[in-house]
């Protein structure tokens, strides 16, 4: 699914460029369920952004599926994101003026799916995350956990092969966090590759693989039995 070889990424700064990802080698197989951990500033979000085609890298290579990601146009990147990748964010990023259904259906709009079909799929997805009865609610009528469920439904609605979540439980209490992680685990059980950036050991403990970043390098990469 994902293959990184000697991948480097730095941000040009006034005095010296900040070297954020250093010679990363990483292979993630289809269907994996992995946590990316590391202290603040270790490059977790940057890695996720590169994997999610939201950011470019400087050298090395990144292959997503069969596609070598290098010099892809913004347009092409948008298409790949829409088709292959679902994003989940710490602060949900639902559009406040759209109902749950409309939020979930939005990626399908950019995929060119007709309206009726969009709504069908969005409702199915809401059903899947247990929020069928909140379909017509606006985000500010939902709890944090419910918002994240809607966001996950949105990430899943195009049936992507890769789900990238950057601290999806960062804004939630521990009970709600557990629910969300259970949901992501079930998503993974359906066959999607799921990568979750997290600070929380409880969260990482539920995953089958934990990749540890220190200063932009992989310090450890363990396979474990989920708790």
């Amino acid at each position: 699914m994902i293959r990184l070889e000697k991948l480097n990424k730095s941000y040009p700064m006034a005095d010296a460029p900040v070297h954020v990802l250093r010679d990363l080698d990483l292979f993630v197989a289809e269907g994996e369920y992995a946590a990316i951990m590391g202290s603040s500033g270790s490059g977790k979000s940057t890695l996720l952004n590169v994997l999610g085609l939201l950011d470019r890298y400087d050298s090395g290579s990144y292959t997503l599926g069969d596609t070598l990601i290098r010099d892809v146009s913004e347009r092409e990147a948008a298409r790949l994101r829409n088709q292959y990748i679902g994003f989940v964010f710490q602060s949900f990023h639902l559009l406040p003026f759209k109902t749950a259904t409309e939020n979930v259906a939005l990626p399908l709009y950019y995929a060119g799916v007709p309206r009726r079909r969009r709504n069908e799929l969005a409702l199915q997805m809401l059903e899947r995350v247990g929020l069928r009865e909140r379909a017509d609610h606006l985000p500010n009528q939902l709890s944090g956990g419910q918002k994240q469920r809607v966001a996950i439904a949105r990430a899943l609605v195009t049936k992507p092969r890769l789900v990238l979540a950057d601290e999806p439980t960062g804004a939630l209490d521990s009970q709600t966090s557990n629910d969300i992680m259970d949901l992501l685990a079930s998503v993974n059980a359906d066959g999607m590759t799921v990568l979750v950036v997290t600070h929380e050991h409880d969260v990482a403990a539920k995953m089958r693989r934990v990749i540890h970043l220190v200063d932009g390098r992989i310090a450890s990469d363990r396979i474990q039995v989920p708790s």
């Binding site: 939201l54 948008a78 829409n82 994003f87 939005l106 950019y110 949105r154």
Partner: peptide
């Protein structure tokens, strides 16, 4: 934020 999100989920420039 809205436009950024739209881009992330597949809106082309």
């Amino acid at each position: 934020a809205e436009l950024g999100l739209r881009k992330a989920i597949g809106a082309t420039p």
